[in-house]
């Protein structure tokens, strides 16, 4: 099944599971870029043997066999909880929770908020593509004002459906000193990798909870071609969701 990839550049991160590539995400989906940045961060920190990966339901679940890393797929929204349980039982492991905006900001918001409040030493990664991808493009907490989705066919009305959720801002406001909070984008994978590394380091040195939101793309549900996909990511999304570090251990931090 697996395609012979030896002559395909660029090289995959060492911790990627080659047998499961090419991956299962839609063409143009940002998950692959996020997971590449994460894979490189794991490689550069040399922690593949210590990482336990937990993935949410939604498109995230397609990452179940993405890495050569023990992985648990949980229920929708419950990934931060399962990840917390693992970390509390085995504090020497490096535990990563991987979820979408629905899982982190809607159905599982209590787990994200309380993991942050308790300063759980886990790394929570949330992919923001402004909609529920796996279930067919419904409105998410992160859907932009006016953005059309299957459940906001006339565009999200702030009056009716409220403002988009700004996760890192919220988490940074409540997280303890020592926590790390950032928002990156698949448009800048090297910066995203840097954020992942710093997030993982916050967990490894025990300084606190770490949370990184990654702005990502969903051409399938956005119904956009490559050009329009990128334009949306770097245009309206970037405008609504400033990238940067919102909380850095010892520094405080603010958006770019």
């Amino acid at each position: 099944m697996a395609v012979e990839l030896t002559n395909v550049a660029p090289a995959m991160p060492a911790c990627w599971r080659k047998e499961t590539k090419t991956h299962k995400f839609c063409p143009g989906c940002g998950h692959g870029i996020v997971l590449k940045a994460l894979g490189e961060a794991i490689d550069e920190l040399g922690i593949q043997d210590k990482v336990i990966f937990t993935v949410d339901i939604g498109c995230c679940l397609l990452a179940i066999d993405f890495f050569n890393v023990d992985t648990v797929q949980t229920h929708h929204g419950r990934t931060n909880a399962v990840c917390t349980g693992i970390k509390r039982a085995t504090p020497d492991k490096i535990c990563i929770a991987y979820m979408g905006d629905g899982g982190g900001y809607a159905i599982g918001s209590q787990h994200l908020v309380n993991a942050a409040a308790r300063n759980e030493r886990i790394t929570s990664i949330l992919v923001n593509n402004t909609n529920y991808g796996m279930t067919g493009g419904q409105m998410a907490p992160t859907t932009l004002p006016g953005q059309k989705t299957e459940t906001s066919p006339y565009g999200r009305s702030v009056e009716q459906q409220g403002q988009p959720t700004h996760g890192p801002e919220m988490i940074a406001a409540m997280a303890a000193e020592g926590a790390y909070v950032a928002r990156g984008t698949v448009a800048k994978p090297k910066v995203l990798k840097k954020y992942f590394k710093k997030a993982l380091e916050a967990q490894m040195n025990g300084s606190g909870f770490s949370f990184v939101e990654a702005l990502s793309t969903c051409p399938t549900n956005w119904a956009t071609n490559a050009k329009k996909t990128w334009a949306f990511l770097e245009g309206p999304m970037a405008e609504e969701y400033p990238t940067g570090e919102f909380k850095v251990p010892g520094e405080g931090g603010k958006a770019e």
Partner: peptide, 23 residues
Amino acid sequence: RFLQTEDELSAGFTTCGGVMTGT
């Protein structure tokens, strides 16, 4: 050890996580 969670969903799922580590 003990962890007080945010609700019973979390209590159950954190327990699942803990158990999966062989604890």
